[in-house]
Simulated assay, not measured.
Amino acid sequence: MTIQSSLDILREAFVTIMTVAGPVLLIALVIGLVISVIQAATQIQEQTLSFVPKVLAVIGSLIIFGNFMLNSIIAYTEKIFEIISGL
């Protein structure tokens, strides 16, 4: 195994991580931003107020994107096993 192939595997791992974690983190970020704007507008500074909507949004996004996320991880794992078996 060359250094280039190792770097390709590492690059693909990072791309897979961003692809899998990206939608959930982006939804949590948007929900947090919306709640923060609402809190700033109403001057309600309760810390737990933003927690519940974020948790519900993350659970909802996991339900929606779960199949895609699992298929991405399985495809990457299968590729890694193919590379290992080829050594």
Rank of each mutant, 00 (worst) to 15 (best):
Val37Trp: 05
Leu62Phe: 14
Ser61Ile: 14
Leu70Thr: 13
Val30Phe: 15
Thr19Tyr: 09
Leu29Ala: 14
Leu70Ile: 13
Thr77Ile: 12
Val15Leu: 06
Thr77Phe: 11
Glu78Arg: 10
Gly32Ala: 13
Phe51Gln: 13
Val37Met: 12
Leu10Tyr: 10
Arg11Ile: 10
Ile31Pro: 06
Gln43Ile: 04
Ile17Ala: 15
Ala28Ile: 04
Thr16Ala: 15
Ile9Ser: 12
Ile35Ser: 10
Thr16Gly: 12
Thr48Gln: 06
Ile80Tyr: 02
Asn71Val: 03
Pro23Thr: 01
Ser72Glu: 15
Thr42Tyr: 10
Ser50Thr: 14
Leu87Trp: 14
Ile9Leu: 15
Phe81Arg: 04
Leu70Cys: 10
Phe14Leu: 12
Val15Lys: 03
Asn67Lys: 14
Gln4Asn: 04
Val55Gly: 09
Ile38Arg: 02
Gly86Cys: 06
Phe14Arg: 00
Phe68Ala: 09
Ile74Met: 02
Glu78Met: 02
Leu33Gln: 04
Val58Met: 01
Gly60Leu: 14
Ile44Tyr: 06
Val20Leu: 13
Leu29Phe: 15
Leu33Phe: 12
Pro23Asn: 05
Ser72Cys: 13
Ser85Leu: 14
Ile27Asp: 04
Ile31Gln: 07
Ala28Trp: 01
Ala57Gln: 03
Thr19Leu: 11
Pro23Ser: 09
Gln39Pro: 08
Asp8Asn: 03
Asn67Leu: 11
Glu46Gly: 04
Ile80Asp: 03
Val52Arg: 09
Ala75Arg: 04
Ala57Ser: 08
Leu87Thr: 10
Leu33Ala: 11
Ile83Gln: 13
Ile17Arg: 13
Ile84Tyr: 07
Ile31Phe: 07
Thr19Cys: 05
Asn67Glu: 13
Val52Pro: 05
Thr2Lys: 10
Ala41Gly: 00
Leu70Glu: 11
Ser36Trp: 09
Ile73Trp: 01
Val24Trp: 00
Thr42Phe: 11
Ile38Glu: 04
Arg11Gln: 11
Asn67Trp: 13
Leu25Asp: 05
Phe68Val: 03
Ala13Val: 07
Leu33Ile: 11
Ile59Lys: 06
Tyr76Met: 06
Thr77Pro: 05
Ala21His: 02
Ser85Ala: 15
Leu70Ser: 13
Leu29His: 07
Leu29Ile: 11
Ile83Pro: 04
Gly66Cys: 08
Leu25Met: 14
Gln4Val: 01
Leu7Asp: 00
Gln39Asn: 10
Gln39Met: 07
Met1Val: 01
Thr48Asn: 10
Ala75Ile: 02
Ile3Pro: 12
Leu70Met: 14
Asp8Val: 01
Leu29Arg: 05
Ala28Val: 05
Arg11Gly: 07
Gly22Leu: 02
Ala57Thr: 06
Ser36Glu: 07
Ile74Leu: 07
Val34Asp: 00
Glu12Cys: 00
Gln47Gly: 06
Met69Arg: 03
Ala21Val: 05
Val34Ser: 09
Phe81Asp: 02
Gly22Ile: 03
Gln45Asn: 15
Leu7Cys: 03
Val52Trp: 09
